[in-house]
Design a protein around this nucleic acid. Sequence first.
DNA 1: TAAGATAGTGGGTAGTTGTGGGTAACTTTC
DNA 2: GAAAGTTACCCACAACTACCCACTATCTTA
Lengths: 154, 154
Amino acid sequence: MTLSANRFIGEYAYSIDAKGRVNIPARFRQALSVENEGTFFTTRGFDRCIYVIPAIIWMDMETELSNLSSVSGINRTFIRNQTRHASSSTYDKQGRITLPTSLLEYAGIDKEVAIIGMINKIEIWNPDILAENDQNNLNLDSNAYDDLAGKIIL
Amino acid sequence: MTLSANRFIGEYAYSIDAKGRVNIPARFRQALSVENEGTFFTTRGFDRCIYVIPAIIWMDMETELSNLSSVSGINRTFIRNQTRHASSSTYDKQGRITLPTSLLEYAGIDKEVAIIGMINKIEIWNPDILAENDQNNLNLDSNAYDDLAGKIIL
DNA sequence: TAAGATAGTGGGTAGTTGTGGGTAACTTTC
DNA sequence: GAAAGTTACCCACAACTACCCACTATCTTA
């Protein structure tokens, strides 16, 4: 276990090639596969982006999901949405992954992508949609945000 | 653990070379890497400067971020904003670090830099922008400043 | 004051990284 | 079962990064 295992930070601008392959930033590769040789999961993000999640984190989430009571309709919907678009995958010798077409469509990605490290997972965005999302967030009521910021002393 | 571990004070005038490398004042180097072999983090500062942060301090923040639930949109936005401009790095044999182009642009740095010790982190400025910032602060309403002053015994 | 150590700056080179394309294996379809 | 389409693996290359060495100025110490 090294420093920053499974900790993803930073934003990167990459592109998808004709075969639907995206490069994973070299700095992410080690963390993505720690303790689970190159295996990870891709699924829909909460926002209009793609999540790339290390196997360990994914399995933790699966456990949490399994603890939700199926009596609640909200829970059922939530569980369903988390799992139905998910699939496991690995990268090729160059460190690239091939993303399922369905996910690319969901995230509105064609050529350029923005990759963001979100600590324990990775987000892949269409840069335009990301910018749009940023813009919308400026208009949010910021009390909750300020509360968060107040707790983080940096 | 020695005296002044992770405590940065003083201002230094250095320059950036053609490769984007900045020297870290020798007096800062030990503190920057205490307990975590030469690793630290760079990111955007609140003002128009670059933060250089010791690993221990940054990792604490990362841990807090990793405990925020991604189900909340505010949390996602917050995490994204905290990590986007950040990257980890180490110094070379000469004690220099290479700053990402994006950060240099943000801070408006081309050649000369002012490096300021801010107790638990380091700020890197374009000297002109720093001077401008100082000038603007003269005009601030000073009530809040006086409040602070009341708390600091010197 | 002289000699050695430390600090700041500059540049070359080998390895890494991001990207493109070819070919074989596999799957699907008729 | 053969053709067409898809996927996965392999190789290639340009740009970039990190590592190494070198030089000078300043500080320390005997």
